[in-house]
Design a protein around this nucleic acid. Structure first.
Lengths: 341, 341
DNA sequence: GCGGTTTGGCCAATCGATTGGGCCAATCGA
DNA sequence: TCGATTGGCCCAATCGATTGGCCAAACCGC
């Protein structure tokens, strides 16, 4: 515990002794605003306590408080990886909302590996967090069902699964927006970089896309739906596979993620195809990079930061014992040169 | 505190009562390997204690431990923003090393704003962390000097300032590598996107670059060194300013950051310049995106993950009261098409 | 068989804050 | 005037783990 050797920790006792009061009195004065605060001490005493407390810079010891109250004001957050801009941005929202509520967060990367999900969940629970946020839910949901059975309050973010409370983007709608945009440009032969098969984000985006195409009488060929990691290398590799298929190449590619889209652009260029004119490319999330690329990327904007905030707020509600319902935030289309030439 | 209603918390008392031992005995058995462990109980008792402990899944309450021992095994980490891939990657290294040592970390974004740096430092210290890692050091260093005076152990990462213990990339060397590469390609009129003026990273990279040029008899015109945020939008804007200058435009641009380089590529394209053939562009950090871009980006690779790990390890040393010295990790050049056409 | 050392464990204080209950004196109501 | 409030504060138990002391029995050598 980092302490200034010159300025020893000031505790309730320090204050109490110096004021000639009992620690319990000081505690009540400093602690309770509403009912008890009033009757805990006389206005004069309250003033004296407050004055000394902030003159000495009193800070309650959170470990003592947690020990006594059985509440830690700590939240654990699991994400696949923070170096994924999408998750990092979501986490920023979580952290922002948390610090407004005087909650602190532990974040950790699970790289979407079940073993790490379990291990890190245990580590986080061992720290006695009040609740958790999972950004790495897998479609099978087995682990989360167990966790729920343990009575730990938690919220999912970005991905959803089963009936667990989740804050997501309306990914299905996002997929539809993408399809409608490309259809309106006249595309009829389209491919999808669908992301990881266990992530509801990719699944829903793909489903929405395919569905909207079908409604417009356009079929997306099954072999034109390829899974890939949500990053540039994954997008590039998947696009190479697409281009290697027999038959006419797609005229448009919808990537379930901006980074995969960037990888796709690279692969296309390697094959001498001009993005925007020869082939349309779309991404998802509208990361800040999208607009600044040499060929600006059309993307479906998802409210990542806001999802993080909402997830924390729902969790706070669950922790307080109140009910909470899943939320689906609305995505919007951002059209740029990668589809319009 | 998330607790299973069906499986109430198991404490030392639970174990002690069930074994007919005193809590202190159980504590010693579970706690101390080296000296005390031996003499704390008979081998038979030790076995009984261990068996029950992990049958019931005993987990020591960290708040109680911290309260008693005055050590929290918590570390606070401040970064400008986690949505900056560079910092996110550094943090991944920190977190990885931390969890190997059973330390937990709080990360928070300060957006390089002094007010938030102070506020978040206070919040983190109020949580009684054992030490801190700053990834957002400002060149003036005033705040850190104060913090050091408070007796808080800390380490800087990525940026350095004054004599505080820091783990950085050898940015000056990185700048030299960039200059030597571009010089070897025959460039004589070069510009630098220098990053934020308060970040030692940008300062040193620029200094190394300019220095190596001077040694080669090439002058970098002062107006060709422009500051900009470390992101794509910043790089684009800075490049626009460069291109608006009177006189012949630079034939090569060295950006102190890959994202700024991407923005530069966008701006150049807008002006009808081909990256790689008309103009060379280099970045810094060699983020995973660099190799996958439509025009793959030449970059100076910095060991971001490793910097994070080392920073945590140095901090652990400081916390243990041992001395620690600053480290400068070596960058390497990655040549790609953005400079070689 | 005796003093001395181990062995094996128990006792109790302590870390800092919270909180249900008490207790005394002043004030109030009738 | 006297009992009932209530304002203002103190007491002490408690949360769970750690740790310096202490103590009784067993064991040792001679």
């Amino acid at each position: 515990m980092a302490t200034d050797p010159h300025r020893p920790q000031v505790t309730l006792r320090t204050l109490a002794d110096q004021l000639g009061l009992h620690v319990s009195t000081v505690s009540r004065v400093l602690h309770a605003k509403p009912d008890e605060g009033r009757r805990a001490a006389s206005p004069a005493t309250i003033a004296r306590v407050r004055e000394l407390a902030d003159r000495l810079g009193y800070q309650p010891n959170p470990h003592a408080t947690s020990l006594r109250t059985q509440r830690s004001n700590l939240v654990g957050v699991l994400v696949p990886r923070l170096s994924d801009l999408v998750l990092a941005t979501i986490y920023e929202g979580i952290e922002e909302a948390a610090s407004e509520r005087a909650l602190s967060t532990f974040v950790t990367n699970t790289r979407d590996q079940p073993r790490l999900q379990r291990e890190h969940t245990e580590m986080v629970l061992a720290r006695r967090v009040d609740g958790m946020i999972f950004g790495d839910a897998h479609a099978d949901g087995a682990f989360l069902t167990e966790t729920a059975a343990r009575g730990v309050p938690f919220v999912l973010v970005s991905r959803h699964v089963a009936d667990h409370v989740a804050v997501t983007c309306d990914d299905r709608l996002g997929g539809r927006l993408a399809a409608e945009h490309l259809l309106s440009l006249g595309h009829r032969r389209m491919a999808v970089l669908a992301g990881e098969p266990y992530a509801s984000t990719g699944i829903d985006r793909t489903a929405g896309f395919v569905e909207a195409c079908r409604e417009a009488g356009v079929t997306v060929r099954p072999e034109h739906v390829v899974h890939s990691p949500f990053d540039a290398a994954g997008g590039r590799a998947a696009t190479e596979r697409l281009l290697a298929l027999p038959g006419p190449a797609p005229t448009a590619i919808f990537a379930a993620n901006d980074f995969a889209a960037i990888g796709a652009m690279g692969a296309l260029r390697d094959h001498g195809r001009q993005v925007g004119s020869d082939v349309a490319v779309m991404g998802f999330n509208d990361t800040p990079l999208a607009a600044e690329l040499p060929v600006p990327l059309t993307s479906v904007r998802s409210p990542m930061h806001e999802m993080g905030r909402r997830a924390l707020e729902l969790l706070a509600r669950l922790i307080a014992g109140e009910p909470a319902e899943s939320e689906r935030l609305i995505p919007t289309l951002k059209v740029r040169a990668s589809t319009t030439g």
